[in-house]
Nucleic acid binder design. Structure first.
Length: 896
RNA sequence: GGGGACUUAGCUCAGUUGGUUAGAGCGCUACCUUGACAUGGUAGAGGUCGGAGGUUCGAAUCCUCUAGUUCCCACCA
């Protein structure tokens, strides 16, 4: 039976070929196994406008590893895919497109604009799901959802109505974050503050009916003074106690201002006098409410000054600011301007400076829901990994503020509210309303606004499963198991999902939240398109393959830690896929066995193993154990590096090298046919298990090789490695003794190779080796042929210490053995002497420290017995070494 | 203002309950173009774990302070 692999691994061909098969064969749909708990992940739905970036690649690789791992454990496994309609982002895209044609959305009107947007979605909206397939993501695409599809829209309405009926949704006039470019309200989370250099303007407000008397107020936004309706001081501030009875004249605008006392005012800051603009500042808004002040809105939706601004009407807010400052200066009312650093909100979509804006919006009352969501985390029913995020989450939850959910855009779920034009009744309904519930009038108008995009995302873990219907999927797959996401959407998404799950289903939506790090570039700045510092995952896939990308990402990103990425980081994955490919190729090339029954090793086969076979099986099983553990605790980097070290540095570097002669022609005389067959079987067993272990991280290549391997076997291994059984650890095969023996063998080989390197003995030249053994029954005796092979020796002799002194040259000292080579070699005595001197110094120092430690009674009394004994053992060994080195030093000195 | 995270070889990072003469990958040096792989092999050089103090028989690992880098959160005009 011959199986062949191409000379080089052609990732592109393999990837497209297998993904098609996987998807077509519905391997990614959950199985019907009722005995095992289902494993469920919902994808953090990427924006429909999105294109795959490294953050996605990391996020989805982790999800895929978990999904494939559980699928191989034969659990019913569902990775629910889908996309987010991304209200503002998508609308921006379509509006930009229209702008190129010289049109605005208003030219089209609402209906036509939405049609246009759906059209855009149909044409471009599947980009990212295609890209996720390139990555190998094993989502169940038959269940793919979109936040605006019919079912999800229904759950949005259901939740809105329920919350409204419960009194948790209310409408009101408040100061919200307004983006003058997107023309919409934003939630607090959507308006992140950035420190910016601004100015603090000190302005004189004249006191009415006084000559030249004035108070000084300070502001960073002078243009808002157009909307001032009062000035506030701290009630305990004696400097201004007289002021309370007086009135002020607001400059530039002909308006009288009263003076109010409010605790909010900090006596220490500035002059201790605050201008109050209730319609343009959240704090002033509160003061305004407390003191029943007038709310004057001075801006239009685009941030320009409106008619209330008198002479400044029509000016953009920043132009108005300049002009106002200039005018004040001319009037002699500008006292001074100081540089001032302060935090300014910016639109998270377009980065425009947010305007605190007074308007009527819909809000969700969050406190009652937060309480439940806090509880489930505190009780450990939802667990953050790493745990430090728990604190971040709880802190936000405990200080939660109401959620502004109305957006003044068109793309999204329209608010299910109909106002009666006749009786002004507010109709809130799951179904479209055509008749007023109060007065039966048909003269209704629906609320113009749509809901925040996150108002549909927060339902994602159950809306995708069919909720509010009691669907079989919902029963079977809710609550989901793991959530995998980045830290930047803990508040936006994770926290709200927990609230929604508890509120609407009475059960937390997932058990663990795995927060992975952020991908940054080599300088540590976040990768973003606008900075132009991105590495496109698709380019990487193109160059090195998806498996290499995935593996590299796992090697690079420590648990939850940010990763600093540069292109060369992907070499590790590329090299590893190459190594696996070539190792398998080599082994397949030299196979002689006929078809095997299967790859499992029978009892009798296990009894006939060579030491090397025993050892590799021990290493394999200890790797299975480690990988299992790593995955269980979400330490993907550990899993990846465990696999890497096993396959490369145990299997390839040592095992294959050791069995090579048996497999190639020169070995034919050396072993019996049965022995060769057994070795081949062990080797195939190891490869087959390794492939299964690697499959969650590197799905494509493992499938390709595994399918070739299948042909060698009579037993039906199944259709795909992705459905095959996840390897279990066979603890009986973790044979410590064989591990120790092979470690000794490796040390011996290293010493001898080192000798070659130091003395420039060519690898081809055979050497003669002698081993002086501590005891006659040393295990080393059984290793002669391996030593011979690894050191390329003509022969290996075992000698006793006293004899044949002149013939052998000492090259190394190990645990139970002293190594010699034939003294006829051309040996660099000076070099050797240097090495021996250094070794002796090290050993001396080490012995000194050990003796010190051991002579300390406190150590003897306090340290655990094993630790103490270990130290004693170390000392004995070191003393032996010391003796040998001393002798050798003497010998070398005589020779010089 | 509050809360995290990070600081270990030239670079990027491991080091899970304190006990290793401190590890890996890349890079570097020397040798190897022997038919699996130069995306390779062998050998080697290179850190005392940001700094200071403390706890302990024993600390990279725990505590305190301190410096630097960085990320969140926060309504001080």
């Amino acid at each position: 039976m011959k199986i062949e692999l191409d000379k080089i691994y052609k990732s592109k061909d393999v990837e497209t070929r297998w993904y098609k098969v996987w998807e077509k064969s519905r391997y990614f749909c959950p199985n019907e196994n009722l005995d095992l708990d289902p494993f469920v992940i919902v994808i953090p739905p990427p924006n429909v406008t999105g294109i795959l970036h490294m953050g996605h690649a990391l996020n989805n690789t982790i999800q895929d590893i978990l999904t494939r791992w559980h699928r191989m454990k034969q659990q019913p496994t569902l990775w629910m895919p889908g996309m987010d309609h991304a209200g503002i982002a998508t609308q921006n895209v379509v509006e930009r497109k229209l702008a190129k044609e010289g049109k605005t959305r208003h030219d089209l009107g609402r209906e036509a604009f939405l049609e246009e947007t759906w059209k855009w979605k149909e044409e471009h909206g599947s980009t990212i799901s295609k890209q996720l397939r390139h990555l190998g993501s094993s989502c169940d695409w038959t269940r793919e959802r979109f936040t605006m599809d019919e079912g999800l829209s229904r759950s949005v309405r259901e939740t809105f109505v329920r919350l409204y009926e419960k009194g948790l949704i209310y409408q009101g006039h408040y100061i919200i974050n307004w983006c003058p470019r997107c023309h919409t309200a934003l939630s607090d989370e959507e308006a992140p503050h950035k420190d910016s250099e601004g100015s603090l303007y000190h302005i004189k407000y004249p006191i009415k009916d006084s000559k030249d008397k004035f108070v000084v107020v300070a502001t960073t936004r002078p243009e808002t003074m157009l909307g001032d309706t009062a000035v506030a001081i701290n009630p305990t501030d004696e400097r201004y106690s007289d002021l309370v009875k007086q009135k002020l004249n607001l400059p530039l605008v002909d308006r009288e201002l009263s003076v109010v006392q409010d605790d909010f005012v900090d006596k220490e800051f500035g002059t201790g006098v605050v201008k109050v603009t209730p319609a343009h500042d959240p704090n002033d808004f509160e003061i305004g409410k407390r003191h029943d002040l007038e709310f004057i809105n001075v801006m239009n939706e685009d941030g320009s000054i409106n008619e209330a601004g008198g002479a400044y009407q029509g000016l953009d807010r920043f132009k108005a600011r300049k002009k106002i400052v200039k005018d004040l200066e001319e009037l002699g009312l500008l006292l001074k301007v100081e540089p001032h650093q302060h935090a300014v909100g910016h639109c998270y979509r377009c980065d425009t400076v947010i305007e605190p804006y007074f308007s009527k919006q819909w809000f969700v009352k969050m406190k009652p829901m937060a309480e439940k969501a806090i509880k489930v985390v505190q009780e450990g029913r939802v667990q953050f990994i790493p745990d430090r995020w728990t604190k971040v989450y709880l802190n936000w939850m405990e200080n939660i503020r109401d959620w502004c959910i109305s957006r003044q855009i068109w793309w999204g779920h329209r608010i299910p509210v109909w106002y009666c034009n006749d009786c002004e009744h507010i109709n809130v309904s799951r179904e479209d309303v055509t008749e007023c519930q109060e007065c039966k009038s048909k003269n209704l108008r629906q609320d113009e606004d749509v809901l925040d995009t996150w108002f549909s995302s927060w339902l994602w873990p159950f809306s995708t499963l069919g909720w509010p219907d009691e669907t079989p999927d919902l029963k079977r797959f809710y609550p989901t198991t793991d959530l995998v996401t980045g830290s930047e959407i803990i508040f936006f998404w994770v926290a709200r999902m927990i609230m929604a799950g508890c509120e609407f289903l009475g059960k937390e939506p997932f058990k663990t939240v795995n927060i992975h790090g952020t991908i940054r570039d080599g300088d540590g700045t976040k990768m973003s398109k606008s900075l132009g510092n991105t590495i496109d995952p698709l380019d990487v896939i193109d160059e090195v393959g998806a498996d290499a990308l995935r593996f590299s990402l796992m090697m690079i990103t420590g648990s939850g830690q940010d990763a600093y990425l540069s292109k060369d980081k992907f070499e590790i994955g590329r090299n590893f896929t190459n190594k696996i490919w070539n190792a398998c190729r080599f082994l397949f090339m030299n196979l002689e066995s006929e078809k095997l029954e299967d790859f499992e090793l029978s009892e009798s086969e296990l009894k006939n193993l060579t030491l090397i076979d025993e050892w590799i099986l021990a290493e394999l099983n200890s790797t299975i154990k480690k990988v299992n553990f790593a995955l269980e605790v979400y330490r993907f980097n550990d899993a990846a590096s465990d696999l890497y070290h096993f396959f490369w540095h145990a299997f390839c570097d040592w095992y294959i090298e050791l069995v090579k002669p048996k497999l190639t022609s020169e070995g034919e005389d050396l072993i019996s046919k049965g022995e060769r067959q057994l070795t081949e079987k062990v080797m195939l067993h190891v490869i087959e298990k390794s492939l299964r272990l690697i499959h969650p991280i590197m799905p494509f290549q493992s499938e390709e090789i595994w399918q070739k391997l299948k042909a060698l076997c009579n037993k039906d291994l199944g259709e795909s490695i992705s459905l095959s059984q996840w390897p279990e650890t066979n603890h009986d095969l973790i044979n410590e003794e064989s591990i120790q023996k092979v470690e000794l063998l490796q040390e011996i080989a290293t010493v001898l190779r080192n000798f070659r390197a130091e003395n420039n003995v060519a690898p081809r030249d055979k050497i003669h080796i002698a081993c002086e053994l501590e005891s006659a029954d040393s295990v080393v005796k059984g290793l002669a042929s391996e030593i011979k092979l690894l050191a390329n020796a003509e022969e290996v002799q075992f000698i006793s210490s006293q004899k044949e002194k002149g013939k052998w040259f000492k090259v190394g000292v190990l645990k139970e053995i002293i190594l010699y080579v034939d003294a006829s070699q051309d040996i660099d005595i000076a070099k050797r002497k240097k090495v021996v001197d250094e070794s002796l110094n090290n050993v001396d120092a080490y012995i000194h420290s050990l003796e010190k430690k051991l002579s300390n009674d406190k150590f003897k009394n306090n340290a655990p017995k094993e630790v103490y004994e270990k130290e004693v053992e170390k000392l004995q060994e070191s003393l032996k070494k010391q003796k040998v080195f001393q002798e050798e030093k003497k010998t070398l000195e005589e020779l010089v």
